[in-house]
Every structure is written in structure tokens, then in C-alpha cells.
């Protein structure tokens, strides 16, 4: 009995990874079947997509586009995650502003912000700043909403405890507020990351002559399906890698509470 129980953790990790790869394998099979059904012109096969992607990665002209996208993503993330965190925290602490702002934020979150791209272009012109703006407006709202709720939903009894123990505001911040709110904040950052990336790519598709989004819209214009598929695969791999790391952190923090 105890032997089984003892070696369970190792098995569980192994099994999780096996499950994950089985799932990926299943998706590849579905992809391949779709390819067979839709035909070569419509949907590139998994093998050819990977080959195309490797080919692209070997081209010198390709890397500046990647760098451009990463740079825009970095700036947008900086604005979205830090700005959203600060704004959300303030709104969470100040109850009335939070109540006033929350429905407005939710309404903004629901807006198809892509509609605004002409406006962004008119303000910022083509180039990096338009992309960053586009990424940031996509990401900052969910980060703010999550941070707001994280701070607002800290159980009042925790805060009272901090007061009873006569912690200084800084101590209370460090030992009570942050640990209590952190799990939700990380969830918000996770969603913020995904939407910021989406926003940057959208920005590049419409407001730029550089970056992966630009390559995609170009390929769409030329109806170059292999390139579309290869770039989509690259983006999916990147998104899954970053999200998985954030998700693991998220899980760890939520398990504790």
C-alpha cells in the first residue's frame, strides 16, 4: 500500500507528460486527416508545415521580423502588465472607484478592439508605436479586471488580522496583501499575455510593414497557405510554451490557497 503511495508522484508526472504528448499526437493526426480531406492546396500537411517552418527559420531575412514582433510584444506587455496591475490595485483598494469602474472595464473588454484599428493608425501612424498601442489595449483590460478583483476579494478578516498584529502598511502589503492576491493576479497576467500577443499580431497585420503579423497578412494576400500554416504553427508553439509556464505558476499559487 505505502509502496504504491510512495512512488506515485513520479508516476503522476510521467503520466501527465505522456498524456500531453498523446494529445498533441492526436491533434496532429486530426490535422493530417483534415489535410487529406481538404487537399494539398487548402491545408498543408503537418510534415510540410514543419519543413516550411524550418526553411523559414533558416532564412536570414526572417529573423528581423521575429525580432520586431518580440520587441513590440515586450513593450506592450510592459505597459499592459504593469499598467494593468497598478490600475487594478488602485481600483481594488478604493472601493467606490472599483465599483464605478468595473462595469466600464467589462464593457471595454467585450469591445471588438479590432474595429478601432483605423483610429490607432490615424493617431500613431504605421510602425512600432501603433503595434504596441494595439497590443497594450488588448492586454491591459483583463489584467486590470483580474487585479481589481484579486485585491477587492481579499478576505476582510485577513486585513483585520494584519491590523490586530499591528503590521506597518509595508509589512501588511508584503505579508498579507500580496500573497492573498497573487494567485488571481497571475491568472490575469496569463490571460493578459495571450491577448497582448493577439493584439500585437493584429497590429502588425494592419499597421506595419514588419513583423510576423505582416508576414501573415502578406501570405494571406498571396494565398500562400504553407507560409500561413508555418507561421501559425510557430506562433502556437510560442504561445503554448509561455502560457504553460505561466499556467504552472498559476496552479502552484492556487493550490496553496
Amino acid at each position: 500500500m505505502s509502496a504504491v503511495a510512495l512512488d506515485k508522484p513520479a508516476n503522476a508526472t510521467l503520466r501527465r507528460w505522456t498524456d500531453f504528448f498523446l494529445l498533441i499526437a492526436g491533434l496532429v493526426v486530426v490535422w493530417y486527416l483534415l489535410h487529406l480531406w481538404a487537399g494539398e492546396v487548402a491545408l498543408t500537411s503537418p510534415y510540410e508545415t514543419v519543413a516550411k517552418l524550418i526553411d523559414l527559420l533558416g532564412q536570414a531575412w526572417f529573423w528581423p521580423h521575429v525580432g520586431e514582433t518580440l520587441l513590440a510584444l515586450f513593450y506592450s506587455l510592459l505597459i499592459a502588465s504593469i499598467g494593468g496591475l497598478g490600475l487594478g490595485t488602485l481600483l481594488g483598494i478604493h472601493r467606490l472607484s472599483g465599483q464605478v469602474a468595473e462595469p466600464i472595464l467589462v464593457a471595454l473588454y467585450a469591445l471588438p478592439k479590432i474595429t478601432l484599428y483605423p483610429l490607432i493608425l490615424l493617431i500613431f501612424g504605421l510602425g512600432l508605436s501603433a503595434k504596441v498601442a494595439f497590443g497594450a489595449i488588448h492586454g491591459i483590460i483583463p489584467v486590470t479586471i483580474f487585479a481589481l478583483n484579486a485585491v477587492r476579494n481579499i478576505k476582510p478578516v485577513y486585513l483585520k488580522t494584519a491590523r490586530v498584529m499591528r503590521l506597518t502598511p509595508l509589512q501588511a502589503m508584503r505579508t498579507v496583501w500580496v500573497p492573498a492576491a497573487l494567485p488571481e493576479i497571475v491568472s490575469g497576467q496569463r490571460i493578459g499575455f495571450a491577448l497582448t500577443l493577439l493584439g500585437v499580431l493584429l497590429g502588425e497585420m494592419f499597421a506595419s510593414q514588419q513583423g510576423l503579423g505582416f508576414l501573415i497578412i502578406n501570405a494571406i494576400g498571396l494565398n500562400d497557405v504553407p507560409v500561413i500554416m508555418a507561421l501559425a504553427l510557430l506562433l502556437a508553439l510560442f504561445a503554448v510554451a509561455v502560457s504553460s509556464a505561466l499556467l504552472a505558476l498559476d496552479r502552484k499559487l492556487h493550490q496553496r490557497s
Binding site: 498523446l22 481538404a38 506562433l235
Partner: peptide, 26 residues
């Protein structure tokens, strides 16, 4: 579900409308 979670979490980072031309062909 455990295997699927990371995919769900990163889903919205992939701009699915890039497949629009693919869907039009189909």
C-alpha cells in the same frame, strides 16, 4: 483535461482568423 489545459490557456494568443483563407478554400 490536464493535458488540454495548457492548450486552452494559450488558445487566445493564436490569431485564428489567419486560417480564414484556408477555410475559404475549403
Amino acid at each position: 483535461r490536464r493535458a488540454l489545459d495548457p492548450l486552452l490557456a494559450s488558445y487566445y494568443a493564436v490569431p485564428f482568423f489567419v486560417f480564414y483563407p484556408v477555410l475559404i478554400v475549403i
